[in-house]
Simulated assay, not measured.
Amino acid sequence: MVPLGTPRAQSAQHLPEIHTELARLRAIVAAALDEELHALVDLRASLLNGCAFCVDLHTDAALKAGVSAQRVTLVAAWREAGDHFTEIERAVLEVVDALTRLGENGLADEVYARAADHLSEREMVALITAVGLINLYNRLGVGTALTPPVR
C-alpha cells in the first residue's frame, strides 16, 4: 500500500507521448476558437474540476489573452456576473458547465442551440473538443496531485 502523502506518478514523466498528442489536439482547437473564448473555456472547466494547477495556468493564459482581471475572477460566478460577459461568452460558458458536469442530461439541445446561434459548426466542434480536452487535462492534474508553482 502506498503511504498517504507519497508523491504520485506524473504522466509527463512516464508517458510523455500523451502530452505530445494532447498538445497537438490543443493546437487544432486553438486554431478554430477565439483565443479569449478558449481561455474562458479552460479556466471555467478547471475551476469546476478543482484543478489548482490548471486554474493557475489558465488564469495566467486568460490575462495574457487580454481578459481583464475582473472578468477572470468573475468566471467562477459567471451566471451572476450580469453584463460582464457577452451573450456568446455566456452561451459558451453554459456549454462548458453542461459538458463538465454531464449528469443525466448531458448537453441539452437548448444549451447547444444558444451557443450554435453564435458559432459556426466548425467552432461548435472545436468548443466541444476544447471542453473534453481541458477536462482530461484537469483529471490528469488532479489525479497526479499537480500543484501550481509558487511565484
Rank of each mutant, 00 (worst) to 15 (best):
M1S: 01
V2H: 00
L4G: 00
T6I: 00
R8L: 01
A9G: 01
A12I: 00
A12G: 00
Q13V: 02
Q13N: 01
P16L: 00
E17D: 02
I18F: 02
E21I: 02
L22S: 01
R26K: 07
I28P: 01
V29Q: 05
A30C: 02
A30Q: 03
A32K: 06
A32H: 06
L33F: 06
L33M: 12
E35Y: 04
E35D: 14
E36H: 09
H38R: 15
A39T: 12
A39L: 10
L40H: 08
L40V: 12
V41A: 10
V41S: 10
D42A: 14
D42H: 15
D42Q: 15
R44V: 08
R44W: 06
A45Q: 07
A45V: 14
S46K: 08
S46D: 04
G50H: 04
G50Y: 05
G50P: 03
F53A: 12
V55Y: 07
D56R: 14
D56M: 11
L57D: 06
T59R: 14
T59K: 09
T59M: 05
D60F: 08
D60M: 12
D60R: 15
A61E: 11
A61I: 15
A61N: 11
A61Y: 04
A61W: 05
L63V: 13
L63N: 05
K64Q: 13
G66Y: 07
G66F: 05
G66C: 11
V67R: 13
V67F: 07
S68C: 08
S68L: 10
A69W: 11
R71K: 15
V72G: 13
T73Y: 09
T73D: 13
L74H: 09
V75S: 12
A77Q: 09
A77V: 14
E80M: 07
G82S: 12
G82Y: 12
G82I: 15
D83M: 13
E87M: 09
E89L: 11
R90T: 15
V95M: 13
A98P: 12
A98K: 15
R101W: 08
R101A: 12
L102M: 13
L102Y: 10
L102R: 13
E104N: 10
L107V: 05
A108I: 04
D109S: 06
E110H: 08
E110Y: 03
A115Q: 04
H118Q: 06
E121C: 01
E121M: 01
R122Y: 01
R122T: 04
E123P: 05
V125W: 02
A126P: 01
I128Y: 04
I128M: 08
T129V: 09
T129W: 04
A130T: 07
G132Y: 03
L133A: 10
L133R: 07
L133S: 08
N135R: 09
N135E: 07
L136T: 08
Y137D: 05
N138K: 08
N138D: 05
R139F: 05
R139S: 09
R139A: 08
R139D: 07
L140D: 02
G141M: 06
G141Q: 05
V142E: 02
G143R: 06
G143V: 11
G143N: 09
T144A: 13
A145S: 06
L146M: 14
T147D: 08
P148F: 13
P148Y: 12
P149T: 14
P149I: 14
V150E: 11
V150M: 13
R151G: 06
